[in-house]
């Protein structure tokens, strides 16, 4: 093992112990380690944004561009300038121009993605479960495919119904919710069950990921202790 690997290993070991000390109690070591992480990451992010975004997108093309091309590049520079100047409280209004630009871009990207990337394909997938070619593709499993299709439509409609009623109801609104069509209330209850199943699977997944992180840290600590004890 090289000396640099040993040094980084010891640093990683110490930082791990400092963070895991939180399991006993919130201590100064835990806070120091987290602040160290935030500081280093923030500095790195500045370097990254400048080196990987602003320089290649804005500065370097400016040097190589013709005069007409430079006029085009002035627009993002102007917008960025407005964003910076807008940090002065008296001139905050100016920053709303680039923010309006970003809002329009983000909203449109989100709408396009949601509609064409999720709503249409997933809706189509629900309908596809009722495709006769799919249902009768394997004669041995027709009943299973029909059951699958029924559960799919019931679960999706139920989950959407549950979203509708899932908000915490104020006392005054409760009566209004009860006045809604009973069929929707029934679907909402069914959806609650399906949502619970999905969230349970997500919970197991999140725990798995966190568990693997714990395993990794125990492996690092154990490995480091083993090296120290073996070297004594």
């Amino acid at each position: 093992m090289t000396s640099s690997a040993v040094i980084w290993g010891v640093i990683g070991f110490l930082l791990t112990v400092m963070i895991l000390s939180y399991l006993i109690r919130d201590s100064l070591f835990f806070r120091l380690a987290t602040y160290l992480l935030i500081g280093l990451t923030a500095g790195y992010l500045v370097v990254l944004l400048v080196n990987r975004v602003l320089l290649p997108q804005l500065i370097w093309p400016m040097g190589a561009a013709s005069w007409s091309q430079r006029l085009w590049l002035l627009i993002p520079i102007l917008l960025a300038g407005l964003l910076l100047v807008g940090q002065i409280p008296r001139l905050a209004l100016l920053s709303k121009i680039p923010l309006a630009y970003l809002a329009g871009l983000s909203a449109a990207v989100a709408i396009g993605g949601a509609v064409f990337g999720t709503l249409v394909p997933q809706g189509q997938a629900v309908l596809d479960t009722f495709d006769p070619y799919r249902i009768y593709a394997d004669p041995q499993l027709v009943w299973m495919r029909i059951l699958d299709a029924g559960v799919m439509i019931l679960g999706v409609v139920g989950t959407l119904s549950y979203f509708h009623f899932g908000q915490p109801l104020q006392e005054t609104k409760r009566k209004r919710a009860e006045d809604r069509p009973q069929i929707l209330q029934v679907f909402s209850k069914i959806g609650e069950g399906f949502l619970g199943i999905t969230l349970g699977a997500v919970f197991a997944g999140v725990f798995s990921t966190a568990l693997l992180a714990l395993i990794d840290r125990i492996a690092v600590i154990g490995g480091m202790l083993g090296q120290f004890l073996g070297g004594l």
Binding site: A107, Q122, V151, M152, G155, F194, T198, V202
Partner: peptide, 21 residues
């Protein structure tokens, strides 16, 4: 079975994203 609820969640999120957008 978890896929069924997940699909409902995805469609619900997409509808919410559409409205907010």
């Amino acid at each position: 079975l978890p896929l069924v609820g997940a699909r409902g969640v995805l469609i619900g999120m997409a509808l919410g994203g559409l409205v907010m957008g």
